[in-house]
Design a binder for these strands. Structure first.
Length: 145
DNA sequence: GCCAACGTTGGC
DNA sequence: GCCAACGTTGGC
């Protein structure tokens, strides 16, 4: 799961302990959260839009998927007038802090690692903020950090 | 700050 | 339903 650290960082998650992953307005990312993610699933926390983007920590999915309340909040920047509260468009899960890495696993390192070949987040032009990670890729990442 | 990638919007 | 225009993401 990507986040710009200026907006929400691994340190923020460590401090908060748990955070609703709100504001996602992309159908593919929504589908992963709503349909694929389960409580207890491992999450890699990725810092984007910085000089050295990469994985900076781990977390866990710690709620079932539920409607994103910011979609109904007219004062929220992610307000979506087309999302009907009776039939919500946007869903999210809560993410709980697990661990901050002593050293980030950078995007460059992931791209150079043949074991991580094909990992979605390493692909050029990938803009999805929530992407699935293969079991074998996840296991390898855990062996590195 | 630039720009490639790509999703969304809206005219037709 | 096509596609040009536009907006956003995010690496560089």
């Amino acid at each position: 799961m990507k986040s710009e650290p200026n907006d929400y960082s691994i340190d923020d998650l460590e401090k908060d302990g748990q955070e609703p992953w709100d504001g996602v307005r992309n159908y593919q990312a929504r589908n992963f959260m709503r349909d694929e993610m389960r409580e207890g699933d491992l999450v890699f926390f990725y810092h984007s839009n910085i000089p050295e983007p990469g994985i900076v920590g781990t977390g866990r999915v710690c709620s079932k998927a539920y409607p994103d309340p910011t979609a109904f909040d007219t004062t929220d920047p992610h307000y979506d007038p087309k999302s009907d509260p009776n039939n919500p468009t946007w869903f999210l899960v809560d993410v709980c802090f697990e661990k901050k890495l002593s050293q980030a696993l950078t995007l460059n390192q992931m791209r150079e690692d043949v074991e991580l070949e094909g990992m979605l987040v390493t692909k050029r032009g990938n803009r999805l903020s929530v992407t699935p990670v293969d079991q074998k890729h996840a296991a390898h990442i855990l062996s590195l950090v």
